[in-house]
Design a protein around this nucleic acid. Structure first.
Lengths: 330, 330
DNA sequence: TTGTACGCGTTATCAA
DNA sequence: TTGATAACGCGTACAA
């Protein structure tokens, strides 16, 4: 409530009997000073509860000491561990984290980006919805790391579902499934494209037939609605774009009086909420917290070095739980 | 990547043929200027892609144009809609949102608070873990709004589970349940205390017996582990501290070969993930997005008026789904 | 209604 | 290794 008046560099300087420059250096470039001076200044500063003023520093250096995360929907559970990883990394680097939510619209994404661009040293765009051209244009204006989007010349962290998808198809093939459904996600999602391609090629190798069904949105409700189509397709297993969709499909299958995994095997993707259903869902798992950490780490490098970094690939693997079982002959 | 050089107030002034003060006022105090001047300056500024420098403004005014949200665990789904509400409100007020995660520890909460305190105009503390004294001390240093914590002299947004809890107990009583379990949450959680009290008093009125069982943490896994105790208690219904715990208990009940709601009715709380299970869970629902919006709104008022505001109460209501049914005589 | 000029707290440059 | 001082971009008395 009461805005307390803070000690400034000048007061510290006076109290310590040094110049303001020395105080400044004691914090930002201690290696330029004699150890004794640093010690003395820091002591005085601590006594006076000195906290460097970030705005002043930013004004002087042009660096904000903050980065921004832009997500399409904070309510999407996928972003939670991602944000946590970013948070953790930034916290230890003493960098502030600004949060933006685009409400799933490309327009808002662009507006927000334009706004946050100036208040931060760089931006992490998670699962962006904007077009390539627009993203490239923005990337020219600030340091940027993309999560789950492949765009030439921009740093990126990609969760490679292919590995896990191959394991998933192999797992199902081993259980005797010969026809499976891919319940697809948003068409403009990079992850969706990768997952579809990986399934297709793995299925070909295992001589398994694949039917692709498109959910309107990757939500629980959409999954429930999609379930009858999944059943009608004649497939005995389904791989869903993400966990929520998969669990929706499971609910829809139960609601139709069938059973998981006896009548239908279900596999989710991301493994955020997969373990939180009954039966616990087999899923393609990725260390999303690590993805967040790597994204933040990469962004800090981009900022420091002033140029894009090599893409970071986060591997995935199949985690078998209770929603997959032997194919039932139909 | 490339840090673009931004237009400054001075360049706009020169281009528009006015003074820097006029440019400044065209943005922060347009009512002081003639409409024509404002129009002209803004036009020139737009042409030059002028964006006010937030750091400079902050340095000059002492206001940061940013607030901070501190949550105990971004992965807890309860915080998602809360953050979304805060985000939304702040976005329309052109206020930036800083995010902090305390990793569930009071120590980190305090550190983070101390850090963010200086970089923002105010803080929203969601479900804080710190003690009253510490919170009060921090509240003296900055503008602060508490979510789901009742502390004298500090502004707060409280989700009043009592209403919904009463409806829940009445609903169960009507279905013939005479003995229910409350699966409790963290002991230091304000919400947990409120919920427990509400259940107790409602149960007394309906002459229903209540057994309180304590989960180690409100997680899905803890719910599964708690389920056998719930069954062993002899109760025919259970109200859980939150959705995740409730769905864990549901999973544990299924795993024990029993059925929901035939053998046991289950009610969750918060209604964030309640609809996303099979059967869809009956839950005590609150508009958490609205809670977030109100929290942000309140904080902006606190900042502006420099003093605490009246507590905001967010009502709850029971949403009946498929996890509750008639009591089975046992 | 508009302009001039100073201060906000820090860092960087240059000199000592 | 340290000090003096000029930026950094904006808001705002005060003056006109």
């Amino acid at each position: 409530m009461t805005t307390r008046k803070h000690a400034t560099i000048r007061e510290i300087a006076k109290a310590a009997g040094v110049s303001t420059a020395t105080v400044s250096r004691a914090f930002s470039k201690p290696e330029m000073l004699s150890p004794g001076t640093v010690e003395k200044v820091r002591q005085v500063a601590a006594d006076l509860h000195y906290v460097p003023n970030r705005s002043a520093r930013a004004l002087s250096t042009g660096r904000q000491g903050a980065i921004a995360i832009i997500v399409s929907d904070i309510a999407n559970p996928f972003f939670s561990p991602l944000i946590r990883g970013i948070e953790r990394q930034c916290d230890s680097a003493d960098v502030l984290v600004l949060l933006g939510d685009t409400d799933e619209t490309a327009a808002k994404e662009s507006t927000l980006l334009g706004k946050l661009l100036h208040q931060s040293d760089g931006v992490i765009l998670a699962a962006p919805r904007s077009g390539d051209a627009e993203l490239t244009a923005h990337a020219r204006q600030t340091s940027m790391v993309l999560v789950n989007r492949d765009l030439d010349g921009v740093s990126q962290v990609l969760i490679d579902s292919a590995i896990g998808m191959r394991q998933a198809v192999a797992h199902l093939a081993e259980l005797g499934h010969q026809h499976l459904v891919y319940a697809a996600g948003p068409a403009d999602s990079w992850a969706n494209g990768e997952r579809r391609k990986a399934i297709m090629s793995a299925a070909r190798r295992h001589k398994v037939k694949v039917t692709t069904l498109k959910a309107l949105r990757p939500t629980h409700e959409a999954g429930i609605k999609l379930a009858p189509d999944v059943v009608a397709s004649g497939a005995t297993a389904v791989i869903a774009f993400d966990d929520i969709l998969g669990q929706g499909i499971m609910a829809g299958i139960w609601a139709a009086g069938l059973s998981v995994p006896d009548d239908m095997s279900v596999i989710g993707c991301d493994d955020i909420t997969a373990a939180r259903s009954y039966p616990a869902m087999t899923a393609i798992s990725a260390d999303v917290i690590a993805a967040g950490e790597r994204a933040a780490e990469t962004l800090l490098e981009v900022i420091q070095e002033g140029r894009a970094q090599e893409p970071v690939i986060i591997p995935t693997r199949l985690v078998v739980r209770d929603s997959t079982g032997p194919a039932r002959s139909r």
